[in-house]
């Protein structure tokens, strides 16, 4: 893969290995620095479920146990429910986004309807609006008008078809040859049929990326669930962790255990589906 940028020592393998070795070492050390807070978090989550004298904690705990995890789960009768809530909210949001942002993206890319450019421009503008502007009216809307605090609907609905996902889908579908669709039309297939049997099979990667980035975003999001839930049984894990952290500011290991619990599902997903995560970063950055 050596790009032309690094063509210097192609004829001198020894120098090349030395150079790459030094770079590798540097990158590894930097990586360790970047990862250390997380390693620290993992290790200390196995520390004692108690307040520590300030002299008692070294870089890693001396005695390892699962007490702190127990401490976190004992804090609230709903701790497991928080994880379940996050799972429900994130999965629900993913399903709706994949279907409806996919359909809309396809229409904006490949169906010639009146006003599509104009409507798509509106969607693009929507991406630029900071969330602070919409949060107050949304909060008033859900609390005072819909009376929907502490419901899954309130947690899922505002993010169920994001402008960003529509944009992503449109970008991707725009790259599919129109001839493919025209052929199917000639053979009498309707748009929905074309979408389901021709377009979807071609778009597994972009669908997977949409699903994963949406899932991660919703699993990790804090602001909206925090506003719209007041009943501990409806907290997501992030809101639960915040509540736990505020109530137990002095319990080091249990807080780390809570952080691990909130982050672990995403880490597992990341290691299982790394390719899509990494692809998800660049796919949105392709200029449109």
């Amino acid at each position: 893969m050596a790009s032309g940028l690094y063509s210097q020592y192609l004829d001198k393998p020894a120098l090349r290995y030395l150079r790459n070795g030094v770079l590798c070492l540097l990158l590894g050390l930097l990586g360790l620095v970047v990862l250390f807070p997380l390693i620290y978090m993992f290790c200390w989550s196995f520390g004692p479920n108690a307040e520590l004298a300030s002299s008692a904690y070294s870089i890693f705990p001396k005695v390892w146990s699962l007490d702190s995890y127990k401490g976190f789960f004992d804090f609230s009768e709903y701790s497991l429910r928080w994880i379940l809530n996050s799972l429900i909210v994130a999965s629900g949001t993913v399903v709706l986004n994949v279907i409806f942002a996919g359909l809309a993206g396809y229409a904006f890319a490949k169906i010639n309807f009146k006003g599509r450019k104009w409507l798509f421009f509106l969607i693009l503008m929507g991406m630029m609006i900071p969330y602070q502007v919409t949060q107050v009216p949304l909060y008033i809307l859900f609390v005072n008008k819909f009376h929907m605090t502490n419901t899954y609907t309130a947690l899922i609905l505002p993010g169920c078809c994001t402008a960003y996902n529509i944009f992503l889908a449109k970008q991707f579908f725009g790259g599919i040859p129109t001839a493919l669709i025209e052929n199917a039309k000639v053979e009498g297939a309707g748009q929905l049929r074309i979408f389901c049997s021709i377009i979807l099979p071609l778009s597994k990667t972009v669908m997977a990326v949409t699903a994963i980035t949406t899932f991660m975003g919703n699993w990790n999001t804090f602001f909206w669930p925090f506003l719209i839930t007041s009943d501990a049984s409806m907290y997501t894990i992030q809101v639960g962790l915040k509540t736990f952290a505020y109530a137990n500011g002095t319990l080091f290991s249990p807080m780390m255990a809570g952080a691990v619990i909130s982050a672990l599902p995403m880490f597992i997903l990341f290691f299982a589906l790394q390719k899509y995560f990494l692809e998800g970063v660049t796919i949105g950055a392709v200029k449109g």
């Binding site: 990586g31 970047v34 990862l35 807070p37 997380l38 620290y40 978090m41 991660m216 699993w219 990790n220 999001t221 804090f222 992030q238 962790l241 915040k242 952290a245 807080m255 780390m256 809570g258 952080a259 691990v260 909130s262 982050a263 995403m266 880490f267 990341f270 790394q274 995560f277 990494l278 970063v281």
Partner: peptide
């Protein structure tokens, strides 16, 4: 890439706590 990306996988709340 994966090593440097990992912290972004954890939530802002978890990172803040740590």
């Amino acid at each position: 890439k994966a090593i440097y990306y990992i912290p972004a996988v954890a939530s802002g709340i978890a990172l803040s706590v740590v």
